[in-house]
Measured scan of single mutants.
Amino acid sequence: WIARINAAVRAYGLNYSTFINGLKKAGIELDRKILADMAVRDPQAFEQVVNKVKEALQV
């Protein structure tokens, strides 16, 4: 799951650890299995999560 998430978030200019930190700051409580599945099956929803994380990180 970690490898999938890392590959997906790198397309948005983040790395895995920064993304996970941003999830916590944004108050998003999705587990890694769901995030990895979302990255593959629903990229639009995953992009929305990434955008919320970037807002929380102020990137």
Rank of each mutant, 00 (worst) to 15 (best):
D42Y: 07
R41Y: 15
A11E: 10
I2G: 02
T18H: 06
E29L: 10
I28P: 02
A36V: 11
D37Y: 14
L23H: 01
T18Q: 13
L30R: 09
I28A: 06
W1L: 13
G22E: 02
R32A: 14
Y12V: 04
Y12D: 02
V50T: 04
S17W: 14
E55D: 13
A11G: 09
I20G: 03
Q48I: 13
I5K: 00
L35T: 02
V40D: 15
I5Q: 01
G22F: 03
I28R: 02
Q48N: 10
A7F: 06
K33T: 11
D42H: 08
A3E: 15
A36Y: 15
I34L: 12
I2L: 09
D31M: 03
V40Q: 09
I20S: 09
S17M: 10
A3H: 07
D31T: 09
G22L: 03
I20D: 13
D31R: 08
I2A: 03
V49C: 07
V49E: 02
Q44T: 07
M38L: 13
L30F: 12
R10H: 13
K33M: 15
L30S: 09
A45T: 11
A8D: 01
F46S: 00
F19W: 03
I34S: 09
N15M: 07
Y12I: 03
A26C: 02
G13V: 01
E29I: 10
I20N: 08
A56M: 06
T18G: 08
G27L: 06
A36K: 03
G27S: 08
A36Q: 04
G13Y: 02
N51W: 11
I28K: 03
N15R: 06
E55R: 08
V49Q: 03
G13P: 00
N21G: 07
L30N: 07
K52F: 08
K33R: 11
V9Y: 01
V53K: 00
I28M: 07
Y12W: 06
A36S: 08
K24V: 14
L30W: 07
S17F: 09
D31E: 11
L23T: 04
I34Y: 15
E47M: 08
V49R: 02
A7L: 08
Q44D: 13
V50M: 05
I34C: 05
F19K: 00
I5G: 00
D37N: 13
A39P: 10
Q58V: 08
A45C: 02
A3C: 10
W1Y: 15
Q58L: 11
A56V: 15
V59Y: 10
N15D: 10
L35G: 01
A56R: 05
P43W: 06
Q44V: 11
R4A: 14
P43T: 05
G27Q: 11
V40Y: 12
N6T: 15
G13A: 04
K24E: 13
D31P: 06
M38R: 02
A39E: 03
A39T: 11
A36L: 14
A39V: 09
N6L: 04
L23C: 04
A45N: 12
M38C: 05
W1R: 02
R41C: 05
L57F: 07
G27W: 04
A8R: 02
R10W: 06
Q44H: 12
K24N: 10
D42T: 07
R32N: 15
N15C: 04
A26V: 11
A7Y: 07
L35C: 02
N51R: 07
I34V: 09
N15L: 06
N51Y: 15
Y12Q: 05
N51H: 12
W1G: 09
A7S: 07
N21Y: 08
L35R: 01
V49S: 01
G13E: 06
